[in-house]
């Protein structure tokens, strides 16, 4: 079999797996969306108030917090994975939570990775709102609360872009969730491929394991789903950026 045939057959089989809604593939996709989606929601609920507090309030340690967020923007995911793992491992300080190799641990790791991204981009979007908008709110009789609401409205497309960037990072991330989640699937086999349904196996971690096992068509199928998800998120982010 030539190299092109081998690739074409792999891709054809990959599409068969996707369109037949193979339970193994679907369970992995479900875990990916659930983990990254939940982490993004929690990170958004933390990051947006944080970005507004930094923009509008004066408090001790503000500069240190900004430095921490900027550092967090380039945080290596394997380092975050290792850090969370050391915290939740049974002999670690939070070992009593019994979180190792669970989706909760994966959500926590992604939360740590995503929060600085959403905060940083939201901060930039809030800072881009002209001072004249804020003064106009005051001159029309608004108070501090009205200023925050008006700023949120003006920065809305930038903030949506920030959230989507966080979701994209979460979906594409592999190092941290591999360490804290363990890439676990149930024993047995579903749909004739791979192993049982996913417990902590995501699209990215499954690609690494399926490729190392030599099951390239499953890897390609997972890759197509992953790239479609990330691409959709980026197309959406791009759309909101252009509307800004």
């Amino acid at each position: 079999m030539g190299s092109v045939d081998f690739l074409v057959q792999g891709i054809i089989k990959a599409f068969e797996l996707i369109f037949s809604l193979n339970p193994y593939i679907m369970s992995i996709t479900g875990v990916s969306i659930r983990v990254s989606g939940t982490a993004t929601i929690l990170a958004t609920l933390t990051a947006i108030p944080l970005a507004f507090a930094i923009s509008f309030m004066q408090f001790r340690g503000k500069q240190a917090l900004i430095t921490l967020i900027n550092t967090g923007l380039g945080l290596p995911s394997v380092f975050v994975g290792l850090f969370v793992f050391l915290m939740i491992v049974p002999i670690g300080p939070f070992g009593f939570l019994d979180m190792v190799y669970t989706q909760k641990a994966m959500i926590l790791a992604q939360f740590i990775l995503i929060t600085p991204i959403i905060t940083g981009i939201s901060l930039a979007a809030i800072k881009a709102v002209p001072q004249s908008i804020i003064e106009t709110v005051y001159t029309l009789g608004g108070n501090e609360k009205d200023v925050v609401i008006a700023t949120l409205k003006e920065a809305r497309f930038g903030i949506i872009t920030a959230v989507l960037a966080g979701l994209g990072r979460g979906l594409a991330e592999v190092g941290a969730i591999l360490i804290v989640g363990g890439n676990i699937a149930r024993t047995g086999s579903v749909g004739g491929i791979g192993e049982g349904l996913s417990e902590t196996r995501t699209l990215t971690t499954a690609i690494t394991s399926e490729t190392s096992k030599g099951d390239l068509s499953t890897s390609i199928a997972l890759g197509i789903i992953l790239i479609s998800l990330v691409l959709s998120v980026n197309i959406l982010a791009n759309y909101f950026q252009r509307r800004d």
Partner: peptide, 8 residues
């Protein structure tokens, strides 16, 4: 103001 701010 000289240049009015416009809400988007």
């Amino acid at each position: 103001f000289q240049r009015p701010a416009t809400f988007n």
